[in-house]
Every structure is written in structure tokens, then in C-alpha cells.
């Protein structure tokens, strides 16, 4: 998992301090450092790249405006940022469910995998079912699995973002992975070449 070397944390503290004073270069540095990871996290939770980018930008507007409130003694900057993003993803998802959920339920259709995700999966020879199974997990399990694997966080950090203790976070991740394993086994673990041929 990701570690922060000492020089990185010093550089980060400097960006945060300057960013809190309104320094554009420091804010831009923070943005470019963390924007891709926030988008990936949001994409894993929302299953829509446009929504993920919108949520990530909204997260940064809030975070950069409130940099003065960030307390490095309480949590890592990435944990703080992911907590804001998670809260916004939940709101976005609930609003979308309210608007589109009933229609999708009536139609009985599973949400489609974004084409950007499909392309990324294809490049690595991964199966589309993995993403679909991830999206089909219950909200607490999906959040934990996405934070752990797509966010590349330790259990302690996952717990801090979800507001639970690390043991609970770990058990949610384990349960999520076990559910994914069962789903993929039931669907039949087709070899990669079969999937590639089918999708071609």
C-alpha cells in the first residue's frame, strides 16, 4: 500500500500551508497530486465518469476553501480528502437513485459499465464481470472495498474515512472480497481469452 516518505510529507505540509493562504500554485499542486485518486475513488462508488469528475471537482473546491480547517494531527491529508469525497459520492448516488432508480428497477436493467472503465479493463485483460460484481455489492461493502483497493488505503485509513474502527473496516473488506469471489465463481471464471473474444 501507499506510503508517504518524509520529504513528501514536508512538501505536502508546505502546499497545505501556502494553499490555506490562497496561493494558487500550492492549490494547483495539491489538486494535481490528488485529483486522479479522488476521481478513481468516486468512479468506483458512482460507476459514472462524468459524475466522478464532477464530485472530485466539488470535493476540491470545498477542500481548498477549507484548507485552514485541516488538522494534520487528526488525519492524513488524503484521508481528509477521501472523507469529503465519500460524503459527496453518497449524496450524489442517493440523488441519482431518487431520480433514476425507480425507472431502472422497472426496466430491470443493470447499470452499464462506463466505456472508459471497459477500455482500462480490456488493456489489462481483466474481466468486465469484476467491475459489475463490485458495483452490485451493498453500499458499506463497496465503500470499504473501493477505499481499500482503488484508494490503496490501509485498514486504519479505511476505518477513518468510513467512521468505524479498523477491525470493522477489515471485516467489511473481507466480506466484500468473499462476496465478489462467490459472484465471480457462480458466473463461471471464463479464461481471459474467452472474454476478449466475446467482447471483440
Amino acid at each position: 500500500m501507499r506510503t508517504e516518505p518524509a520529504e513528501d510529507s514536508t512538501r505536502l505540509a508546505d502546499w497545505i500551508e501556502r494553499g490555506a493562504r490562497g496561493d494558487e500554485a500550492a492549490c494547483a499542486a495539491l489538486f494535481h497530486e490528488f485529483y486522479p485518486s479522488v476521481v478513481r475513488l468516486s468512479l468506483g462508488l458512482l460507476n459514472d465518469l462524468d459524475d466522478a469528475e464532477e464530485v472530485a471537482q466539488d470535493t476540491f473546491v470545498y477542500a481548498l476553501r477549507n484548507l485552514g480547517r485541516y488538522d494534520a494531527r487528526r488525519s492524513a491529508f488524503r484521508t481528509w480528502l477521501f472523507t469529503i469525497a465519500l460524503s459527496r459520492c453518497r449524496n450524489k448516488r442517493r440523488r441519482k437513485l431518487l431520480l433514476q432508480g425507480p425507472l431502472e428497477l422497472l426496466a430491470g436493467e443493470a447499470p452499464a459499465t462506463p466505456r472508459e472503465v471497459e477500455a482500462a479493463l480490456e488493456r489489462r485483460g481483466l474481466r468486465r464481470q469484476l467491475w459489475q460484481a463490485l458495483q452490485a455489492l451493498s453500499e458499506p461493502m463497496r465503500e470499504a472495498v473501493v477505499l481499500r483497493y482503488l484508494g490503496e488505503m490501509r485498514y486504519k485509513e479505511v476505518g477513518a474515512v468510513l467512521g468505524c474502527n479498523p477491525k470493522t473496516a477489515e471485516s467489511r473488506v473481507r466480506l466484500g472480497v468473499e462476496t465478489l469471489r462467490r459472484t465471480l465463481t457462480e458466473q463461471g471464471a471464463a479464461p481471459e481469452w474467452q472474454w476478449s473474444e466475446a467482447s471483440a
Binding site: P36, R40, L43, G44, E116, V117, A119, A120, L121, R123, R124, L126, L130, W131, L134, V145, Y149, L150, E152, V177, L180
Partner: peptide, 11 residues
Amino acid sequence: LEQLASALKTM
């Protein structure tokens, strides 16, 4: 899942 995370980094 780890490969998926790496794949999304190339997006």
C-alpha cells in the same frame, strides 16, 4: 482488484 486499480490509473 489490485490489477483493476492499476488499470484505472492508466485511464
